[in-house]
Amino acid sequence: MKNVLGRRGLAVVFGAAACLGLVSTAIAGLAAGPTYNLKKLKGSVTADGSSTVGPYTTAAAELFRRAGATGVQLTVGISGTGGGFQRFCKGEIDLSDASRPMRNSEAAACKTNSIGSWRAFTVANDALTVVVNQQNTWARCLTVAELKKIWEPGSKVDNWKDVRAGFPDVPLKLFGPGTDSGTFDYFTEAINGRARASRSDYQASEDDNVLVQGVSGERGGMAYFGFSYFTENQSRLNAIQIANPKTSQCVAPSKATVFNNSYRPLARPLFIYAKGSSFARTEVQAFLDYIFDNEVAIANRADFISLTPKQLKRARTNFILAVKAAKRT
């Protein structure tokens, strides 16, 4: 028939559009209380930021949901620490995952956009891990000075024999994270003394799995990344012990050494930044409250190192202050 086909096509198309029109609405919660009835919570919480912290927030969101908060729509993005802060300071998100503290320039952006106050919470710990190939039998422990010799800007070290007298003549192949990552910022600050100051003639990738593959396929390979990438790939890589600058003792990265503060200087805290105004919403409060109540479970689930009791206490106090501040306004 003439144009029946054309008309029917349009009808289908518009019908489908109408179905999509069913829109979920967010209803903000009301009064804040010390305990939260998770089952009654509604609304949405948006988080974005570091891909290192992302799995932690995701695990927290999962357990939060399982604990009964099915009415809260929690989303976690991984735009990177810098990307997360950018969105955070535009007021687009409630929580910003960060693997390093906020920079002054970022804080300035937050202020010019007048998003109000914000608070940083330490939520977990990570051990930046320096890894080498499994056939590397010589490098068991390195000092900060040796690492600096390798990684500092302008470094020309390209053979293991130049790292320390007695090391074999094996070409050194370096792999590292991209310059957008918080890991890069933290490592360069801890080892080279200044954030973002690093030699640049190494193979960089935003994808840590690429680094894992690079080092496991290269006898003289070396890389650094978050602890969880090492624990998942222990069978393919060796972790280097780091000589503690104070005690000069060689310390391997582990939950215990981070916890007792001996793995230095590469143990780092991970943060979630929260917008002050978001605390006015019960679902945001309840989510953070849930995190501090279930810190260990969340850290274990996502393969992170949990907070020390001291860190947890500080985070808790910080949280309670934030809730009070939100009530006042």
Partner: peptide, 12 residues
């Protein structure tokens, strides 16, 4: 976003 634990909607 990478973690979304609910069915999407047009404006969600």
């Amino acid at each position: 976003i990478t973690y979304v634990a609910f069915n999407p909607s047009l404006f969600g």
